[in-house]
Amino acid sequence: MSSVPVARASRGGRPPSLVTRRRVRGIAGLVIGVGGFLLVWTLLSALIFGPFTLPPPSRIGSVMWEIVRSGQFIHHFVPTILRLAYGFGLALLIGFPVGYLMGTSRWWRAFFHDMTIVAGSIPGITYAVLALVVFGIKILGPILSVGLVSMPYVAINVAEGLDSVDHRLVQMSDAYGRRRASIVRNVLIPSVAPFAFAGVRLSFALAWKVEQLTEVFGSSSGVGFQIRHEFEDFSIPGMLAWVLLFVIFMILVERFVLAKLERYLFRWRLEDRP
């Protein structure tokens, strides 16, 4: 029978799977993209702006290393991350109940809808300045500006998630006599989770930028404070080094914490049919 050897041959000399090929292609794209960016930067620095106006990547790299090695990075990084975490926690604490009310009651939807849209459209810098003027530069200002800028996204996404609940699953649960608490845990929360998570990722991307702004405007510690400090010293390498360190950290959080968590939580969606 010819079918047996054919089947064996395809198993033995297996070509790289589609997933592997996609991953290789993705990494190649990333390396070429970043490499190209650094090359253009180096050329601009050497040929057009000069190393004082635009220091080359190698110079920034060594300053970054110096900041990390001296312990300054940790020193200013911890307060920034804590403020971000508190502010973000505040956004979730308010955003979830508001979203729940909007998603379950017409009256509350009407009450909150326009306000959340307006709150979401206001530029981050407005929140930064406002929070500093009203609540001061200590700790409350930055936390509140992060909370205010993130909250509408969380609320709107939670409300939309509740809208998307498949009522046939709720009916099924009723027909089998499930209690309300069990339906919330097994049907409502899992339906809302992907939306809530999208809201969290979106607002996280905004939150850390606003957090930096508040620190630039008024704070006595944190990464944003260091950026302003270097700016006032006319130290472009120092400024860029702080910015880049923070950006790299945020990308790592996005890629390796949030994206991984999302993949794990929603693995039931990613499975392919046999």
């Binding site: 046939r168 699953l169 009916q171 099924m172 027909a175 089998y176 097994n186 049907v187 899992p190 989770a193 929603f266 039931w268 969606r269």
Partner: peptide, 12 residues
């Protein structure tokens, strides 16, 4: 109750 569609919880 068996419905027209399976009505399984996709996340379980």
């Amino acid at each position: 109750y068996v419905f027209q569609e399976p009505r399984l919880l996709p996340w379980r």
